[in-house]
């Protein structure tokens, strides 16, 4: 089965992207979950949809846009959305979670209007919503690899700051950690990873890859470092099993990845019945 899979170049590229986001998403997810911001992933992925819809609409009149992958526009929107989100979190200092539904609903609102105007409610949309393994190009794989390098360097160099910030933002600030800058960079990085993951898992299921492996990991981990080890393992396992089964049964990969991640979470919860 694997041999067949690797025979086609688009499947190889899909696998490369899948394995990259299979650890990028959950590793970022560790920080996101620890900061109790799990919903942020949904807000940013929906804003990506808006960007994609905007691209599809523009491409109808601007032919130069037609050969370009709409995900790039999605990425741009997602990064912009992440900055808006940080601003809103300051505006609503004591209701920080309000920023998420505001961004999320504006994302869907604009997205749906753009898609209607572009008359794009077909199979393309389905691919963006639930992921797909067809027509993945070498360029897609290259861009995601590049993003992966940036994210890995970011996490290595800012690990201690991110850790402190996730644990106690106020104390981090007092200790002279440049919290604003780090928060800003982190949100941009998260937006990039979310946009990269959309190719394979789809907008509606990005959060499953970012959050479910972490949810399983938090039950097993005895230290912060272990969180990453488990999140990495569960993320990669979900993507590998998800992609192969999706290909085999000809279903949307996002669904199979989310189901695999859920299965892992179920097993972990079942194995370790203890509240966290």
């Amino acid at each position: 089965m694997l041999a067949v899979f690797l025979q086609y170049s688009f499947l190889r590229y899909a696998l490369i992207i899948g394995l990259l986001v299979g650890f990028l998403a959950p590793v970022l997810g560790v920080f996101i979950v620890m900061r109790r911001q799990a919903l942020i992933t949904d807000a940013l992925s929906h804003i990506t949809l808006t960007g994609i819809a905007f691209h599809l609409l523009m491409a109808q009149s601007l032919t130069v846009l037609q050969p370009v992958n709409p995900v790039y526009m999605g990425m741009g929107f997602s990064v912009t959305g992440s900055l808006l989100l940080e601003r809103l979190r300051h505006v609503y200092a004591s209701y920080k979670e309000l920023a998420v539904p505001i961004i999320l609903s504006s994302g869907i609102g604009f997205g749906v209007v753009f898609l209607s105007l572009a008359d794009e409610f077909g199979s393309d949309l389905f691919r963006y919503l639930f992921g797909s393994i067809i027509a993945v190009t070498s360029q897609d794989a290259l861009v995601v690899s590049l993003i992966a390098v940036i994210v890995i360097l970011f996490i290595i160099f800012f690990y201690k700051e991110l850790f402190f910030l996730s644990f106690d933002e106020e104390q981090a600030k007092i200790n002279g950690i440049p919290t604003k800058t780090i928060n800003f960079l982190f949100t941009v990085i998260a937006a990039l990873v979310i946009a990269s993951s959309i190719r394979i898992v789809g907008i509606l299921l990005v959060s499953s890859l970012m959050i479910l492996p972490v949810a399983a990991s938090v039950r097993l981990s005895k230290s912060f470092k272990q969180m990453f080890v488990y999140a990495f393992l569960f993320g990669e396992l979900s993507v590998a099993v998800g992609l192969l089964t999706a290909f085999y049964f000809d279903v949307a990969p996002g669904g199979m990845i989310a189901l695999t991640a859920l299965l892992i979470l179920g097993i972990v919860i079942g194995l370790k019945k203890e509240t966290h």
Binding site: K160, F167, A172, I177, V218, S223
Partner: peptide, 28 residues
């Protein structure tokens, strides 16, 4: 009253106290 489910070891928590003075791009 911090997030009591946070999986950080005592050692990891105490290390945070050094992060500010270590500066960016430095390791323990």
């Amino acid at each position: 009253s911090f997030n009591s489910g946070f999986p950080a070891t005592v050692q990891e928590v105490v290390a945070m106290g050094l992060y500010g003075q270590m500066g960016l791009f430095r390791f323990l």
